[in-house]
Design a protein around this nucleic acid. Structure first.
Length: 327
DNA sequence: GTCATGGCTCTGTTAGTTAG
DNA sequence: CTAACTAACAGAGCCATGAC
């Protein structure tokens, strides 16, 4: 900037004004400075620009469970689009559902002075964010609400969606429905299990706890659990998988078995409609979640002081075949 | 009073310098 | 040798100035 100022024979301040398109600079000066900027290849240093207090870094942080998971990458893509429209850069990371890792990532983002944070919480307590929020960092939670504090959150209708999926199986005449779920600490899994129980209770069916498989970490675990369920003396005639990894595992196990078992999964799966028996899912829109959360974040950054928002996004049952298998 | 422009100062961190 | 101080980085906020 100093070189530009010297070459264009103006002050630093005038270059700053031209760079930031501020009003009050003569058209001749603007042309001369712009030409010099072009000639010297000057680019504003945003790191230095954000040095002054009150100045934003025009970056936001995004922490999800795993950017490799299609659900989270769908969110990330949508967040990126909104951020770009707002002139912001997204710095993203995966917590691997590890609370410790989540905190480290957030700390790193805060050290880089991101203006706002979009977080899919892995741990049960996010009160460590309160000092950052007090300093002016905007925070919006996705997929799961925060613990130990309250803040804006965009979540899914997990209970309702799961209930609808299980009711769909019940309507086909299934009475023994297995449940495949991941770690019990993840709130979404708990809520989807509640939906499962509510559907059975609504149909006057006692839950057989042997059909509930918990603590499954990945698709491999879900496959093993499915095989175990099918090996029971009175195996389930249908399965409800609480997320896409569980569905994938169940699908692998079902492919290798000669049982005719119905399957409904929460979360849509890529290619789910192209399988021999396409999968029926409780679908939702990751992009809508990303867009909603990002817009909320930027509204807060723009000074919106409305009370904290809890946006609940709907789910839809997509009938494709696997959930329409009758017992 | 308005417009165009310039000058000083401040920011958070760190390398380098000086004092004790 | 350590502690304290200072300069440097690149830009922007605030205020000043001169011309009209």
């Amino acid at each position: 900037m100093r070189d530009v100022a010297a070459a264009a024979d103006v002050s630093l301040k005038t270059v700053s004004r031209v760079v930031n398109r501020e009003r009050g600079v003569g058209p001749e000066t603007v042309t001369r400075v712009t030409d010099t900027i072009e000639r010297l290849g000057f680019r504003r240093n945003d790191l230095a620009r954000s040095l002054r207090p009150g100045q934003r870094t025009t970056t936001i942080g995004l922490v999800v469970g795993d950017v490799g998971n299609p659900f989270f990458s769908g969110i990330a893509r949508a967040v990126e689009q909104v951020a770009r429209d707002e002139g912001h850069l997204v710095i993203s990371g995966s917590s691997d559902e590890d609370p410790e890792h989540e905190r480290e990532l957030i700390a790193t983002l805060c050290m880089r002075r991101v203006d706002g944070i979009l977080l899919v919480p892995a741990g049960r307590d996010q009160s460590y964010l309160l000092p950052e929020i007090a300093l002016g960092t905007a925070v919006v939670f996705l997929d799961r609400p925060p613990g130990g504090m309250s803040a804006d959150a965009v979540v899914l209708d997990n209970v309702g969606g799961a209930r609808r999926g299980v009711e769909h199986l019940l309507a086909r005449g299934h009475r023994r429905i297995g449940l495949l779920r991941d770690s019990g600490t993840v709130l979404t899994a708990q809520q989807r299990t509640s939906g499962y129980r509510a559907a059975l209770a609504g149909a006057g069916i006692q839950v057989d706890e042997r059909l509930l498989c918990s603590g499954l970490h990945d698709a491999g675990d879900a496959s093993r659990a499915t095989r175990e369920l099918l090996a029971l003396a009175d195996p389930p005639t249908a399965l409800f998988a609480v997320n896409n990894r569980m569905s994938l595992g169940a699908l692998r196990a079902l492919r290798d078995s000669n049982h005719s078992v119905a399957l409904v999964g929460f979360d849509d799966l890529e290619l789910a409609d192209m399988l021999t028996t396409p999968i029926t899912v409780v679908a939702h829109d990751p992009a809508a979640m990303g867009v909603t959360a990002a817009r909320l974040l930027f509204r807060r950054l723009a000074g919106d002081t409305r009370p904290q928002q809890r946006v609940v996004l709907p789910t839809t049952l997509v009938r494709r075949g696997s959930g329409e298998v009758t017992p």
